[in-house]
Design a protein around this nucleic acid. Sequence first.
DNA 1: TCAGGTTCCATGCATTGCACAGTACCTGGT
DNA 2: ACCAGGTACTGTGCAATGCATGGAACCTGA
Lengths: 117, 117
Amino acid sequence: MEPDIAGKPAAGKAESQLRKGVLEYCVLAILRDGPRYGVELLETLGAVNGMVTSQGTIYPLLSRLRRDGLVETRWQESPSGPPRRYYELTPSGHAALKEFTAIWPHFRDAVDHFITD
Amino acid sequence: MEPDIAGKPAAGKAESQLRKGVLEYCVLAILRDGPRYGVELLETLGAVNGMVTSQGTIYPLLSRLRRDGLVETRWQESPSGPPRRYYELTPSGHAALKEFTAIWPHFRDAVDHFITD
DNA sequence: TCAGGTTCCATGCATTGCACAGTACCTGGT
DNA sequence: ACCAGGTACTGTGCAATGCATGGAACCTGA
């Protein structure tokens, strides 16, 4: 059992709670640029400050996205290692992402409004 | 049983999930300007686009804040109606708010980075 | 053969927004 | 005096989600 890609064991409580409901759409946004597989998504997320997460988060999340019809998957052999499951946006996934990108600015500005006195 | 202040029964699933972990700090931020009571907080939150919530959300949240020592309360008579419980920040509350205001900009920019291609 | 890295999956817990239901206080009309 | 309606607070139960934990399968290289 290997430790997760993220070196830090866990960020603060606030940061963890912030990800709720946002991580899902960040994944959809990444998939907008083309198909990705699990570990690749982890790396892309971890490259951005404050978005580090772990396999225990990403795989259940991807299962939910698949269950809800927001992504489709296909297996592909890896040049080294076990086969990879590539995730790709469905029309529903595109729609969900579009809906979020419409809501997000309002929400972001609302929080800014309260935080900055 | 009266309906909540918010006219709209419920926003989309995304908007609801967005509030998780943020509402708590918005409340702390409002309390930074001075003591407020429950319904007053509901009105202040509802005045900002995307932050509408209900009593079923705010009162359990306030109970948690009190349990965790982030706020203190005192009862005060109302000019018309039942007595009001006023909430006020403790030093721990100020510290938690300060921690969040330090994290939020990074998180906000991270989401923006993914969303805006 | 076997140790280690890579990739995936499933289970269980804590947190949190919210719907729903209930209690208590005050005011004003009859 | 009585009661309807508004104000304000409280508690319970559910669903969604991040995450820790454990594990299985595949490949490479010593």
